[in-house]
Design a protein around this nucleic acid. Structure first.
Length: 206
DNA sequence: GCCCAGGTGGGTA
DNA sequence: TACCCACATGGG
């Protein structure tokens, strides 16, 4: 199937997803979730996000002011808690300095480069923040995307991140709502396949 | 017990 | 560029 055909197939099969799956839906929480989900199942990210929210650490201001060890304890369910505690602080500092500027800007590759310069923010995390928190037309490549690219699209799945991203972007109109839906549908599709083969996971129901 | 999960940074050749 | 490894927890 082509990239376009696969989207149409998924949309007919699953319908609108309206992601990002978050607790409060604030820009900061989306960014925090993007960091916390690094090599970690989303159900464990939710525990960490709930822990943070429960003690009021749900804003960049609060995270910057908090003790790193405390943040580590709260995000422990998401694994790599020492790293992620440090990363959350880095991203929080970035948010305090740049969130309003990003929110008001038109997307440019320079914005992505700035985000990628933050420690703990690699390509996938940066793109998830750009798309889901700031609504920029940036296609997110993750393990699910690579899996479906290899299995269902005329792609290898092992392409370099930026190359695979270019292929998706080239095949689709630069519409953040479409990129959002497509990525969400891919995740839904993969999780359903995973469920059927007995490895757990869930699909957004609404 | 073993493997995997919506990665990233640092090091080496 | 292309590998390798550490990072850590929770669920099947």
């Amino acid at each position: 199937m082509t990239i376009t055909e696969f989207y149409q197939y998924l949309f007919v099969r699953y319908g609108e997803q309206h992601w990002w799956p978050c607790v409060s839906g604030s820009r900061w929480e989306i960014a925090a979730g993007a960091v916390l989900t690094q090599n970690c199942a989303w159900r464990n990210v939710e525990k960490a996000l709930v822990n943070l929210e429960a003690v009021g650490l749900n804003t960049p201001e609060a995270v910057v002011a908090a003790d790193a060890a405390l943040i580590g304890e709260l995000v422990r369910p998401a694994g790599f808690f020492r790293q992620k505690s440090a990363y959350l602080r880095e991203v929080a500092e970035f948010f305090l300095a740049n969130e309003s500027r990003f929110a008001a800007a038109e997307y440019t590759p320079e914005l992505r480069r700035e985000l990628l310069a933050v420690k703990g923010v690699g390509r996938e995390t940066a793109d998830a923040i750009l798309l889901y928190a700031f609504n920029f037309p940036v296609f997110v490549i993750d393990a699910y995307t690579r899996r479906v690219a290899a299995r269902h699209l005329d792609l290898d799945g092992t392409e370099a991140y930026d190359e695979l991203q270019r292929k998706f972007a080239a095949a689709l109109p630069a519409d953040p709502a479409l990129f959002n839906e497509y990525h969400a549908l891919i995740v839904c599709f993969c999780k359903e396949s995973c469920r059927k083969s007995g490895c757990g996971g869930d699909c957004p129901t609404s």
